[in-house]
Simulated assay, not measured.
Amino acid sequence: MTKPSLLLAGLFLAGAAFAQVGTPPAPFGSGPGVHGANSPIAPLPQRSDVVPWSVLTAVKSRTEKNRVLPQFQPQQLALDGTTQRIQGFMMPLEPGEKQRHFLVSSVPLTCSFCVPGGAESMVEVRTRTPVAYTQEPVTVEGRFATLRDDPMGLFYRLTDAALVK
């Protein structure tokens, strides 16, 4: 398993372990994620030039052989293979100030060991050039893919991406 795969797996395992101890309002590591009123980071502003998280998080899922698989709706399938913009919060997959492979989430991280929502609330991003890590919202543009059976359990990926200013 690669370093990013181990880190991502660790994030999901840590979230599952916390879910057994804590009492979050929804199953931990599932759903669209919730931006709490006490968050030190402001919610994402509404923008017409990015794919709304409401479209991405509207995906249905099913469990098959102990795996959660997406059941994409026409609105998500229409994005597959097209150039799209995604706005969200960076979740680095490797150490360092600059990132080429990271997740963008609909809500900010509040704990380095917890995932803020389910697979429907994250997009894996691979950029052409390194991007400086920030806790502020970012907008990235690239080739969008819907992932029907990703080994890491992700539903969406953006490749050949670049930061949009």
Rank of each mutant, 00 (worst) to 15 (best):
S61V: 11
V107H: 00
E124D: 08
E141C: 09
V21Q: 14
F113I: 09
V138H: 03
A37S: 12
C111K: 06
Q46T: 15
P40F: 02
P70Y: 01
P4N: 05
Q73Y: 09
Q73F: 09
F144L: 05
E136V: 03
K65T: 14
V125W: 06
M90F: 07
G33W: 07
G153Q: 01
A16P: 04
G33Q: 04
A17L: 15
P40Q: 02
A78G: 03
S48M: 12
A14Q: 10
L44W: 11
I41D: 04
P24D: 07
L11N: 07
C111Q: 13
R62Y: 06
L13K: 11
E120S: 13
V34A: 04
G118F: 00
F102Q: 01
P45V: 06
S5H: 13
G117D: 01
L13Y: 13
A132P: 00
Q75F: 05
K60C: 10
P108G: 03
V123D: 06
L77Y: 11
S54M: 05
M152Q: 14
F72R: 04
R47K: 13
P43F: 08
Q99T: 07
M91A: 10
A78M: 08
L44I: 08
L6D: 10
S30N: 05
V55D: 14
L158A: 07
V50H: 00
C114E: 12
L11E: 02
T159F: 02
P52F: 05
V125Y: 03
T110H: 12
V140F: 13
C114W: 06
R157D: 08
E124I: 09
K65P: 05
S61Q: 08
R62P: 01
R67L: 11
